[in-house]
Design a protein around this nucleic acid. Structure first.
Lengths: 212, 212
DNA sequence: CAGGTTTTTGACCAGACAGTCAATAACGTA
DNA sequence: TACGTTATTGACTGTCTGGTCAAAAACCTG
């Protein structure tokens, strides 16, 4: 009997996520969100509770999507584990050098968080650990395959890849060019292969210096 | 004959930098700055022009200090170039896992910037390139020493180290523990050495998993 | 088709915030 | 010691923001 909602919650969260990815939590105004989602202020408030809560929802979605993306990229067995990681890192290089001004909500939350027990800090931390777990799984397979030395520390390597990815995101935001980012990704991968310098060279598509 | 200032500009910038490092540009209120610097609003305004301009000054200082720190760490010839980089990365691991809630203004500026031509974006970009230049110099020495293969791409490796450092900063902010960060740093360094797994293990001080 | 429940709408509010103004104070010099 | 210059002080302001309220609307069921 109650009046039904005119919106789909997940769609609203998606739109909000877009806004937050561009502006961040503090800089995004409620009006930005109202405009982007199409809902009225009060409806937003009824459904989510406020700007911060909405951000938290968007953050969860962001985390889920990131985890899913990495899981998929590393999960297919169309290639060896190491090749999958390679493909994934190269894809990230391309993504992070796209010109849109988006920043992952994980990074945004981390930077805007006010304390270690702030959900803005704990959620990203959990996300990072989950992501690292996904990498670790793939790396473990590689180790079992003999593609990685038996004494490889799969755990720390997993966090290493998360760190590199985060760093590449920031460099991309700074406007560092695609070729550099790709080279960085290939450098990062060399940790897994020992010394194979040639690869880094053959891949870089548009020269090693940044556009300017 | 004019009335002299009661403050030293560089000290004010330093205090402001502290505030911005904790809160960021948007979230820092003018009152925070007034309290931290000891100046009145109007004095701040006279001397610098406003919050944003003050941030830009602090950002410059941040960039200079970062560059100087890396230059010094990589410049001494008390050790081989590669050993210097190693020492530096391990130091970063420790620094980034300290519990203070500071974030480099470079990272903050990048995240809060609104466009690629925004000084909040261009300054960090220049800083990153300058930093990469410093790394490149050190790596070049290593290459000349024969500590690096002749075909090593010193340029991209330099950006690689900047990226890893940035990533470690973010992980530290998320509360990832010192041992993990140290292990990450050591993993990152393996790019330079080929495959030497043992090092990563012997160095990690308090176990490879994060505290929780 | 009427009633109950919830959403929507749009006006409203109190607080905070960056920035300004005008008056006062402090200094060096002449 | 008086004057000109610049710093300081503290009160002021207009705007914007997140959040709230109350009335109207929409839907489903009985």
């Amino acid at each position: 009997m109650p009046r039904p909602r005119k919106f789909v919650e997940s769609e609203v969260v998606s739109s909000a996520r877009e806004v937050f990815a561009v502006h961040g939590l503090a800089a995004a105004t409620l009006d930005d969100l109202v405009r982007a989602t199409g809902l009225g202020k009060q409806s937003l408030y009824n459904a989510f509770g406020g700007k911060r809560e909405l951000f938290l929802r968007a953050l969860s979605e962001d985390r889920e999507e990131a985890t899913r993306a990495v899981s998929e990229a590393l999960g297919h067995d169309d290639a060896s584990p190491l090749e999958r990681i390679r493909g994934h890192m190269l894809l990230m290089a391309i993504e992070f050098s796209s010109s849109d001004r988006r920043v992952s909500l994980t990074t945004r939350a981390l930077v805007e968080s006010t304390g270690e027990d702030d959900p803005l800090s704990t959620t990203p931390k959990a996300g990072i650990e989950q992501l690292a777990g996904t990498y670790a799984q793939c790396l473990e397979h590689a180790r079992e395959n003999g593609d990685l030395p038996a004494d490889a520390n799969v755990q720390s390597l997993a966090f290493y890849f998360v760190a590199v990815t985060r760093g590449m995101e920031l460099l991309g935001r700074a406007g560092v060019g695609r070729s550099v980012l790709t080279a960085v990704a290939l450098d990062a991968l060399r940790v897994l292969h020992g010394r194979r310098m040639e690869e880094a060279v053959e891949e870089a598509d548009d020269g090693p210096s940044t556009r300017e």
